[in-house]
């Protein structure tokens, strides 16, 4: 949609009649209109980033007042040598790979289903959108209780069907604890991927498939050789958005496990929050925040490159 901005120079239409001074006035008004939003974003987003940069070079612990001082790169050094940080980074990486992969596959299936015309289509679309709209923390609470050993559904179903796994304390296993975490994350986020893919699917003209059919391609072949390549841009956008938010997962972990058992479900966002807001070690927390910001901006950079390559984007 944004593409249309560039295709026709609408903003210049009045030029011929009104002359240069009118154009300049419109331009000035234009800047004035954009400015408040930019200032607001700079204040709430850019300023904290700079603040982190400065703070990360200082020793600043709330419970030790009067001892703040410049320490150079020492916070970063402590971070690099902390095995817990690397462990949390690893957990985060594993979580990103598994959750994004599963959500992508499920989202693709969802999109393909909803793209077909059938009776209950409206119901499906609405029912998948509700989980998306539920706050992440609430989704985590809901799935935590779903896996509760007493009042949860999972235990009930497994026992009723005499399946193995009944009486499992999911949150006491460093591996199994990830199951509810990932299911909750999927429940909440798959719809988003599905919507993006669906919008992509709807731009593919039906005729392509018909001619493929005439050529004798099976629907499976058509999916691989036509749908997937044509969807490539939508897929990339969806994957990057999800990768970023999965990398920063916090609410789900905080609510479901608090990083436990042990530290087996601790992720980098939790690590950062804990250092900043519980240990109240502001200098160290700022250093972690800087590292996380760099990781996120790397992803953003990839994203912008992909957009650039796409035809029609505002340039």
């Amino acid at each position: 949609m944004a593409a249309k901005l560039a295709t026709r120079p609408r903003d210049q239409l009045p030029r011929s009649r009104r002359g240069a001074s009118y154009l300049a006035r419109r331009r000035r008004v234009g800047y004035l209109l954009v400015l408040p939003a930019l200032i607001a974003l700079a204040l709430v987003a850019i300023y904290p980033l700079l603040y982190n940069l400065v703070l990360s070079s200082r020793f600043d612990v709330a419970t030790e007042p009067g001892t703040q001082h410049f320490v150079g790169m020492q916070n970063y050094h402590s971070l690099v040598v902390d095995p817990a940080f690397w462990g949390d980074l690893l957990h985060t990486g594993i979580f990103v790979v598994i959750s994004v992969t599963l959500e992508f596959v499920a989202g693709m299936i969802l999109a393909l289903v909803v793209n077909r015309k059938f009776r209950a289509r409206g119901l499906v679309r609405a029912s998948i959108l509700i989980p998306w709209a539920i706050p992440t923390a609430v989704s985590a609470l809901l799935w935590k209780m779903f896996f509760d050993i007493r009042s949860g559904f999972v235990d009930f179903a497994l026992s009723a069907l005499h399946l193995p796994g009944a009486q499992t304390v999911w949150f006491n296993s460093p591996v199994l604890a990830w199951v509810p975490i990932i299911l909750s994350d999927m429940w909440k986020n798959t719809p988003f991927i599905a919507l993006l893919l669906l919008a992509g699917l709807q731009t593919i003209p039906q005729e392509i498939y018909e001619s493929a059919k005439i050529d004798g391609a099976s629907s499976w072949q058509a999916f691989w050789s036509l749908t997937l390549p044509l969807l490539r841009p939508a897929i990339l956008v969806a994957l990057i958005f999800r990768t970023l938010s999965a990398m920063l997962v916090f609410d789900t972990i905080f609510v479901m496990t608090g990083g436990g058992p042990g530290q087996s479900t601790e992720v980098i966002a939790y690590y950062n929050w804990y250092k900043y807001m519980v240990s109240l070690n502001f200098g160290y927390g700022a250093a972690v925040a800087v590292v996380i910001t760099i990781l996120a901006l790397l992803l953003a950079g990839i994203y912008v490159r992909i957009l650039r390559q796409r035809e029609g984007f505002v340039t």
């Binding site: 904290p48 980033l49 603040y51 703070l55 950062n272 929050w273 927390g285 996380i292």
Partner: peptide, 12 residues
């Protein structure tokens, strides 16, 4: 794209 978690500390 800015990580929310990185804003928390400074804003606090």
């Amino acid at each position: 794209f800015f990580p929310q978690i990185a804003m928390v500390g400074p804003l606090y």
